[in-house]
Nucleic acid binder design. Structure first.
Lengths: 342, 342
DNA sequence: GCTAATTATGCAATCGAATGCACAAGCCGG
DNA sequence: CCGGCTTGTGCATTCGATTGCATAATTAGC
């Protein structure tokens, strides 16, 4: 008596069919828009009526088993909480939802072995496709997806091999924007807080910065590599930077979180931004326009990135012969008050 | 020739069984830790060896169909991008992942009818449970979950009926902390930017504020209701507030985003925070410690909230007779520089 | 008015794994 | 040395929907 009855079995297609006085196969066709036309209109109506009155809900598990398509896409994320990845995920689910796909998420955190487990779990669920936001520049997981033959798209981070589709921001261009801006303002001693080099974002942004600098006959005043894209690592890196290059007048951080850490480091050292040192970030994450001073940064359309990744993946799912595509999104410089004319 | 062969069929249990020279049912048992003991050790080894060498991965679709358990939980979110919900989701996936469940997400956005579609989609996938972060104070969806008999837990927002489990922050206590703090600082003219009253957070925080105020024989200097928990609505509400209660010395915003809007409004009016007006937020979202001035706010452990919701849900899934539980998490006041002694 | 073509529906197999039941082999005690 | 018990494995059904093929009913054509 106590407790909700769990035994309330779902209505099956067969029950609907019986209620409508037809065979289950007929009911199946009646409820499938693309097959409805094979049936008499009167029958279709009778079946749909029976279905709604019984509260029928088709069991996608069974359907997927039969059709070999789950309409499920797996998304592997390094960190759900990170303001880079949540809008990406938002864009992905939005675009996928419009195409009637659902999204299973796997938030990796850090552990590497853990990541493989999650990957296997997704494949066991027979996802129709995979979106990886976790890829390192040479990622064993990419190998695995290739083996398994699951359509896959990389997002935000690319891998070196270019063996699967990807959607990324043009990191080189982003750094060019940042560097040109600083040079316009008269800066020459420009230092860099780099991101982890095993990630394409860390690696490419550093290379982009160096390239843009050398186009002006300059070298970085100094570079420190942060252990992770985090505030604390940014603080540490900036502290190191201030020691290595005391003459630097500007710092380009590989992303906003690192820039935030740099803010803290500056404050600790009694330095003023932008008075003593200008800072440029990357991503334009929420609220960086409200901090003191409002951060000059390179804006990336993360949501769009997610949407495009979903679009690419859908192409691959629908047509296995789709060639491997890579989309590169253009970033935009947002000038605020953390950079000033020298 | 061109294009990846999609036809690479997955290895089935039957194939593994044949390779190991046993029947598929035996293979099934050999691969199930809880049934392994029924078998001879030698057979178990032969099967597991065959499984790994063939690269077998069990088809959870088929397994779920047979066992009537999908080990899948659906999470309905109002906005993935919102810094309140991403840590909640993070906590949920973390805790659920530890119990070998996967998470399907449905990001509602706004549209109400859309929400019902997503809900139906989740049920069609036969999720074992549901976590709703979208609930309004009287939500038709709660009705639906009750009907369907799917174990459900509400998170962050509760509904009035208390008919399903929930995990929320003690909004009343949060507001008490904020009010006591301001009163300690000598404030008497305290205004409120309230959240949408159809959400428990909006409603309960307002009521909590009024209760705490009246415990000191005070009334709100004024209250404006924001149309949504957004920066822009906060700005608008604050502007209105400044007109309604020009003598107010402090504003309590129903959340940080509204507080951010208030900052902008103050700036527009040439007012200084905390010089002219003190402001308290709610949530302690990322970066509010970096803005100018650093925001005094009520911290909520969103990740914990997610974890607890997952825990509650697992109890309900595992034992249908688990009574409806409601967990209320204690918030914490974080004093920074947006509030000052009068 | 009879065959051919068409349309509408039913039948039965299938997807892959799990599991109740049957059965065989081995063991024990009396 | 045999009946009963335990242990290990196989058989066949089941989960719920989809779909190729067969067939019944209807229409068209001549």
């Amino acid at each position: 008596m106590a407790g909700r009855e769990r035994t309330k079995r779902d209505v099956t297609l067969k029950q609907v069919a019986k209620a409508a006085g037809v065979h289950s196969s007929t009911a199946s066709r009646a409820l499938d828009p693309s097959k409805r036309h094979m049936l008499g209109t009167e029958v279709v109506e009778r079946v749909t009526a029976a279905a709604t009155s019984l509260g029928y809900r088709r069991n996608s598990l069974a359907a997927s088993l039969r059709t070999q398509r789950s309409r499920l896409v797996g998304v592997l994320l390094p960190d759900l909480t990170n303001s880079v990845f949540s809008p990406i995920l938002g864009g992905v689910t939005e675009a996928l939802g419009e195409a009637d796909y659902s999204v299973v998420i796997a938030d990796v955190g850090t552990a590497g072995e853990h990541q493989l487990r999650l990957f296997n779990e997704l494949l066991a669920r027979r996802v129709d496709g995979l979106i990886l936001a976790t890829a390192s520049r040479s990622d064993p997981l990419v190998e695995r997806t290739l083996e398994s033959g699951v359509p896959t798209v990389l997002v935000n981070r690319a891998e070196s091999g270019n063996r699967v589709g990807s959607v990324v921001s043009d990191d080189s261009e982003g750094m060019r924007l940042a560097v040109e801006h600083l040079i316009d303002l008269g800066h020459r001693e420009i230092a860099h807080i780099a991101g982890p080099p095993h990630l394409s974002t860390g690696f490419l942004r550093r290379r982009g910065l160096e390239k843009s600098l050398s186009a002006h006959g300059l070298l970085p005043a100094a570079t420190t590599i942060a252990g992770a894209f985090s505030r604390e690592e940014g603080r540490l890196a900036c502290l190191a930077l201030l020691d290595k290059a005391p003459k630097a007048t500007a710092i380009v951080a590989a992303n906003d979180l690192l820039a935030m850490g740099a803010y803290e480091a500056l404050r600790e050292r009694g330095l003023n931004c932008p008075g003593d040192i200008s800072i440029v970030g990357h991503n334009d994450m929420p609220l960086v326009d409200m901090i003191a001073p409002p951060l000059t940064t390179v804006r990336i359309r993360h949501r769009t990135m997610g949407r495009e990744a979903a679009r690419l993946l859908l192409c691959q799912i629908e047509d296995a012969d789709t060639p491997v595509q890579s989309i590169v999104l253009m970033p935009e410089l947002i000038v605020r008050e953390s950079t000033r004319r020298l």
